[in-house]
Write a protein that binds this DNA or RNA. Sequence first.
DNA 1: TTGAAATGTGGAATTAGTTCCACATTTTTC
DNA 2: GAAAAATGTGGAACTAATTCCACATTTCAA
Lengths: 347, 347
Amino acid sequence: MEQQKVTIKDVADLAGVSKSTVSRYLNNGYISAEKQAKVRKAIEQTGFQSNFFAKRLKTRESKLIGIVLPRMDSVTVGKLLSGITRVLEPEGYQSILLVSQLSSKKELESMQKLQQQGVDAILVDSVGLTAEHVRRAQEWGLPILYTGQKNAAVHCLKIDDAAAGHRMGVYLRQMGHKHAVFAGVTESDEAVGIERKEGFIAGFCEGRTDAKVDFVETGFDFLSAYNQAAEIHKLGPSVVVGATDNISLGILRYFHERGVRVPEDISVVGFGGYDVGAVVYPALTTVAFDYELMGMKAASYLLNILRGGEAEMTNLDMPLLFVERESVQNLAKKTLPINSTSLPAMM
Amino acid sequence: MEQQKVTIKDVADLAGVSKSTVSRYLNNGYISAEKQAKVRKAIEQTGFQSNFFAKRLKTRESKLIGIVLPRMDSVTVGKLLSGITRVLEPEGYQSILLVSQLSSKKELESMQKLQQQGVDAILVDSVGLTAEHVRRAQEWGLPILYTGQKNAAVHCLKIDDAAAGHRMGVYLRQMGHKHAVFAGVTESDEAVGIERKEGFIAGFCEGRTDAKVDFVETGFDFLSAYNQAAEIHKLGPSVVVGATDNISLGILRYFHERGVRVPEDISVVGFGGYDVGAVVYPALTTVAFDYELMGMKAASYLLNILRGGEAEMTNLDMPLLFVERESVQNLAKKTLPINSTSLPAMM
DNA sequence: TTGAAATGTGGAATTAGTTCCACATTTTTC
DNA sequence: GAAAAATGTGGAACTAATTCCACATTTCAA
């Protein structure tokens, strides 16, 4: 077994001090200026690098944060991760990534692996919280924060899907729409599949009886939305509400192919505020979520728990940004909405 | 200092054997069936979990792979990561992620951090290889693999940008185009900024003197491409070649706003094969790169180096897929290219 | 039936750090 | 000027595993 090139012992010998003194130099200080210089020189000369594992074994702090994500190849996950990293890196923390592939079982397995790995805390962009999740969190005594799902028994941080849906519902009601088709996803995704939809229905139907919302289920991708578009169209709504911008984009493509004009013949809206929504035509009206900000907040929150911060994070609600672009017709006034010639609301 | 709940010592005491025996049970075997049962039972009873750091300290193997990425919130990086993870996870390796923010200096710093962290190997989606990169790789004696850039002195894996550009050039030449504007990025990105462009010019101009290629520089995002679109249009080409699909999407938007029809009035192509390219209209003709496959190959390659595999990876070239969709007019035959009514070449 | 080989086993050393404690100085206070 | 406090320092213990080595059994062959 080959051994480490330079250990703290070598530095100590070269500097003519004890291991303890070098260790103190490395950590809290408490060393005379004279020896400090000697040690510094010895470290320079030897090119000493502290052994990560020996250090962690004793200190029981890894400066590693475990992150479990449902998938990697998605813009929202990328932005989330970007925000997380932005906060964690300057604090000297690093991230270990695991992918749950949208499976709650794999999610738990991943968390277990991370726990064994000795991470200081775990952040999970969850696909669904189970009782087991709650139990494990307690058993491990490890700070765990969930994003994307909500449960009172654990730390979590989530976009207010109901509010986002509601906001869109109110907007479309004000624009004079009466019949909407909600192109949504499976109800097993509580946040997107249920909350967002219910919120929309509430906002859209509030205080009137002549409103109608149909529901068609699709997947999260363009293609499955595109494939459902004919059925959606057949229902004859004045507006199609895609549960995500991707869904709306697939539907937009279908309408384009059939010569159905948007928004003149039918309106289309989405959720997410993806960048591409601004570059397609008509540019997509949407409720934008700031996933990068969410990542930053999540990381800060986690750090706060980690430090025993009873400073109780106060500002945990995620702001929603309504992005009005070109894909909705104002039926109330029988005029088109603002149709800017420059790239609308591009981020 | 709180200590670990259950150590190998506790298990040994409970099972009535020595620590060594438990360790052997955990690792190579070499233990009698009788004691094996006892140890198994003791581990079950105590819920023993091996201490990651103590183990790593002794074995000098972390089962951790460091990954340095230029940024997180990009589809290509997401796919790459997805491929990497797909190979690494089943092999029991986990990834530590660091972001270089497109800076070569930060890239080196990140690599250094990972090295200190005791990772078994490093994978870098590099933004530019320097002499320092090569020096460090030797100094550390750690397997390092670069993707996205090429250098004979180190292990690397890269899309053949020149070939991709060439392919597109040949295609457009065959389609009868004579005047192209290449909307490219800064030459400091050797792969995209130089190789892809030069490859295109070669393929486009090959064997004729009546071809002309103008160059306009933009950023990587929709917006900066959109902002350069007027200048591009002024040059009056028959086709605009975006160095990435995003650039082409921004240009498409501009043309749409001005009522310039694509491909009837002007053709537009891109590189990358992003999913959205299939859903916009006209669907974008492009050279698709399989970044997920690249991630998988990169991870396999790295594992191979790690295992001292002199099995010399042979199949390192990345396949290119030419995706002909709707955004190019065939000037040679004065007819439109295949215009499918279903979602073209959607992945 | 003896010697050799195979099979287990435990003790002790090892890995590379941190930290507690005792003790020597030096500085401050009364 | 003595006692008290502050400041450094090194030795030894400790962290939780793996692994080498010596030694006891047991099995097998001659």
